[in-house]
Simulated scan of single mutants.
Amino acid sequence: MSTFSIFLALIVVVAFLLVVVVMVQNPKGGGLSSSFGGGGTQQLGGVKKTTDFLDKSTWALATLLLVLILLSNVAINTGDGTVDSKALDPNATTTQPLPSTTPLPTTTNEAATTTSDSLQ
């Protein structure tokens, strides 16, 4: 298992936890929960410090997610050093084919000229 795969798995787990923490939070302005009968007066679990914990955990998970994404960019496997495109390879030398110096054979189309003369 590569380092990038490990970072990818951690990013998915942290993103899922971040979504869960954000969904559990009680909106400050009432939000949609107050319009559906929530009232916004109940504290989650009856503890006043729960909102502080959820707020801090949201910031911590968001920061962790950003750091993991930046570190995973460093861990991306770039392969064995070969470049697929010669435009991106600074050491590649490309040669353009030279134009042909031999004249093209000319063909006379006598049948076309005779038919056009006979139509007149």
Results as ranks from 00 to 15, higher is better:
residue 74 V to D: 05
residue 78 T to W: 15
residue 28 K to F: 11
residue 88 L to T: 03
residue 56 K to R: 14
residue 8 L to H: 13
residue 110 E to P: 03
residue 105 P to K: 00
residue 15 A to N: 04
residue 35 S to E: 07
residue 61 L to R: 05
residue 81 G to D: 04
residue 33 S to P: 06
residue 55 D to F: 12
residue 83 V to S: 09
residue 103 P to Y: 01
residue 104 L to F: 13
residue 52 D to Y: 08
residue 19 V to G: 09
residue 65 L to Q: 03
residue 9 A to F: 07
residue 109 N to E: 03
residue 50 T to Y: 09
residue 100 S to Y: 02
residue 33 S to D: 15
residue 3 T to I: 03
residue 5 S to K: 10
residue 51 T to Q: 15
residue 103 P to R: 00
residue 113 T to N: 09
residue 4 F to K: 03
residue 67 V to G: 04
residue 82 T to I: 00
residue 77 N to I: 00
residue 65 L to T: 04
residue 18 L to Y: 08
residue 115 T to H: 01
residue 80 D to H: 10
residue 90 P to D: 06
residue 54 L to T: 00
residue 80 D to G: 10
residue 93 T to L: 08
residue 43 Q to E: 10
residue 72 S to E: 06
residue 94 T to A: 12
residue 56 K to F: 12
residue 57 S to E: 11
residue 91 N to F: 10
residue 53 F to G: 00
residue 9 A to D: 14
residue 19 V to N: 04
residue 91 N to Y: 12
residue 44 L to D: 02
residue 77 N to A: 07
residue 99 P to N: 09
residue 9 A to R: 14
residue 43 Q to A: 14
residue 38 G to I: 02
residue 118 S to T: 08
residue 79 G to Y: 10
residue 81 G to T: 01
residue 16 F to A: 14
residue 5 S to E: 15
residue 8 L to D: 15
residue 25 Q to P: 00
residue 56 K to I: 01
residue 20 V to S: 08
residue 102 T to N: 09
residue 55 D to K: 15
residue 32 L to C: 05
residue 84 D to I: 04
residue 47 V to D: 10
residue 100 S to I: 04
residue 45 G to Y: 04
residue 15 A to L: 08
residue 9 A to N: 14
residue 107 T to I: 06
residue 25 Q to M: 14
residue 105 P to S: 00
residue 99 P to K: 13
residue 56 K to C: 00
residue 65 L to Y: 05
residue 7 F to I: 03
residue 69 I to M: 11
residue 33 S to A: 11
residue 8 L to E: 13
residue 74 V to K: 11
residue 106 T to A: 10
residue 5 S to T: 13
residue 70 L to W: 11
residue 58 T to H: 06
residue 54 L to G: 02
residue 2 S to E: 08
residue 76 I to Q: 14
residue 83 V to G: 00
residue 120 Q to G: 01
residue 46 G to D: 05
residue 35 S to C: 07
residue 119 L to V: 15
residue 21 V to Y: 07
residue 72 S to R: 06
residue 115 T to S: 07
residue 102 T to L: 07
residue 55 D to H: 14
residue 10 L to Y: 12
residue 26 N to A: 06
residue 18 L to W: 06
residue 65 L to K: 01
residue 64 L to W: 05
residue 97 P to Q: 07
residue 3 T to R: 11
residue 88 L to N: 14
residue 96 Q to I: 13
residue 116 S to Y: 02
residue 8 L to W: 05
residue 9 A to P: 10
residue 91 N to L: 08
residue 36 F to E: 03
residue 96 Q to R: 11
residue 60 A to V: 04
residue 84 D to A: 15
residue 8 L to Y: 12
residue 88 L to C: 01
residue 16 F to D: 08
residue 28 K to Q: 10
residue 71 L to D: 03
residue 20 V to Q: 11
residue 90 P to G: 05
residue 75 A to E: 09
residue 114 T to Y: 02
residue 66 L to V: 15
residue 29 G to P: 00
residue 49 K to W: 12
residue 12 V to N: 13
residue 15 A to C: 06
residue 78 T to D: 09
residue 79 G to M: 07
residue 35 S to D: 05
residue 3 T to E: 12
residue 32 L to Y: 10
residue 92 A to H: 05
residue 24 V to C: 06
residue 60 A to Y: 13
